[in-house]
Write a protein that binds this DNA or RNA. Structure first.
Lengths: 283, 283
DNA sequence: CGTGCTGTTGAGGACGATCAATGACGGTGG
DNA sequence: CCACCGTCATTGATCGTCCTCAACAGCACG
């Protein structure tokens, strides 16, 4: 199916075109991203994770298969993908979640361009049992590389292994931070979640204060009820911190949001790109 | 007494001798653990993480430095350890936590024999900023290997790199499970935490239903107040599920505890040793 | 122009936090 | 050996954050 890129994106239903994780370059991309453009997040991510050798990177990129036009609501990593892959999100937004017995769903993390979305599948032999799902929240494109190729690269170029390992460690940091956040009052919890997403997008070069998620998704990620989440959002709007359109959060006042969240981006370990987020003094 | 303490352990203040993470082998180790005995968790862990080559393992073990007699309350990973190491807990029990601004502390995970306790330090250059602390909850012994040696081994023997990576992925699983657990009612949250510790100890061969932790520690890990935690414990005792002595939880009825927790050990990915924990049917 | 999803509003109730005090145990020093 | 002290466990009372239920409004899509 899609993999020639280009035209394919346009063929997509484009349900949420304006919400897609546009990198904010209004340049000459009118006719769809070239493969090189699309793969920019790959380079950025690996560079950030310590893979500096251009040759190594090129070798990895050669083995990658691109898929465009995955629309909101689609499952990335469906059972169709049982053939084991290593997958990176190139554009758009997605979330990793699990449905609990009582019907509620817990969103573990939001996925931004440059994120690996199936490390667990790559690492664990029987990861399907975990019932971890990944769903597109905006029009997405992904890059996949099959397990065997990935294995070989990791074996021959230790830097890649370390990069993936580092990515896993950052996931630990994120999960732990969210864990600690569950004890905070609702307002701070929501504010912190939004700060996290802003920071992550910023580190991938996306700097419009826009996050294409609904209140429901925020609720599922923070563990709050949708009703209470809604009330928090109203408060945040009254404070002039953010605006909200259907399924879109727009952060108007980053500074204030960050204060409300008492946000300290260091746990994301994306130093280079976070200069704009003040590092709070050690308490 | 338990693990018959080597001379070294015995020299420790032995504040909590009976609470130390006894491996439950009443064998002929009367005069203290030989290096081989002490290092058994190393082999077990790496085997579980896919390092099967005995030669590789031996090479690793050769570079290890053992330290005994770390007593309850001591900080493993103090600033004294600034020299970068990779550290594994060999015996005892510890916890990884962070103190929050408001004084409360969040315990992220309990550390059992065979756990790596400082992967974050090994991986992140400036991990100290994270203010992650590791404290002994019982008399502990650890094995450390300096960063450079570890680097070399990882580089020359990819299996080790993958093992450490796998360990990191399991940490992700644990953190995410705890995250989801924050939405459950207090009883289940506590029960689940205890099940997790039992399962982890079992996978390292410790099968007395004893966990040497206080109610305060359970509270700090589950995010409940100490008062409420106490009430939950009382309920669990009335149900005949567990008994409690000062700083010691004894699980009397595993089966029932597991039901209350709706515990499914698969996320720990320690398959081989968990035969006794029934795998719940997929819901 | 319905149908469905998202966002909004109100009322009532529950789970768990907080505050305050006491009991029990163990370790320490006189 | 006993008195002291700190930590851990326990109990009662009150309060608040957040959940649940229920209904409705708006927008997008077919």
């Amino acid at each position: 199916m899609p993999e020639t890129a280009g035209a394919v994106v346009a063929q997509g239903r484009r349900t949420c075109d304006r919400y897609s994780g546009c990198e904010g370059k209004p340049g000459p991309a009118m006719k769809g991203p070239s493969a090189a453009d699309a793969l920019r997040p790959v380079a950025r991510t690996f560079r950030m994770l310590g893979v500096s050798d251009v040759g190594e990177l090129a070798e990895f990129v050669k083995l990658v298969r691109i898929e465009h036009g995955i629309v909101r609501g689609d499952m990335l990593l469906s059972s169709a993908h049982t053939g084991k892959h290593l997958t990176m999100l190139l554009g758009g937004l997605a979330c990793t979640f699990r449905r609990q017995e009582d019907g509620t769903r817990q969103i573990y993390t939001f996925r931004h361009p440059g994120d690996f979305i199936d490390l667990h599948r790559y690492v664990f032999p029987q990861a399907d049992e975990q019932h971890l799902e990944v769903e597109a929240l905006a029009t997405c494109s992904i890059a996949t590389i099959d397990n065997q190729s990935a294995d070989q690269i990791v074996e021959h170029h230790p830097a890649f292994g370390r990069a993936l390992w580092l990515a896993a460690m950052i996931e630990v940091n994120i999960a732990r931070t969210r864990l600690a956040a569950m004890r905070w009052p609702a307002m701070r919890r929501v504010a912190h979640l939004l700060c996290e997403q802003l920071a992550r997008r910023l580190s991938y070069g996306i700097d419009n204060g826009v996050i294409p998620i609904s209140q429901i998704e925020v609720a599922d990620a923070t563990g709050l009820s949708t009703v209470h989440t809604n009330r928090v959002f109203q408060d945040l709007r009254k404070l002039g911190v953010l605006a909200m359109k259907r399924q879109t959060v727009e952060v108007v006042n980053k500074q204030r949001l960050q204060e409300l969240a008492e946000f300290d981006a260091r746990y994301l370990s994306a130093d280079e790109h976070l200069s704009r987020w003040s590092v709070r003094p050690v308490l």
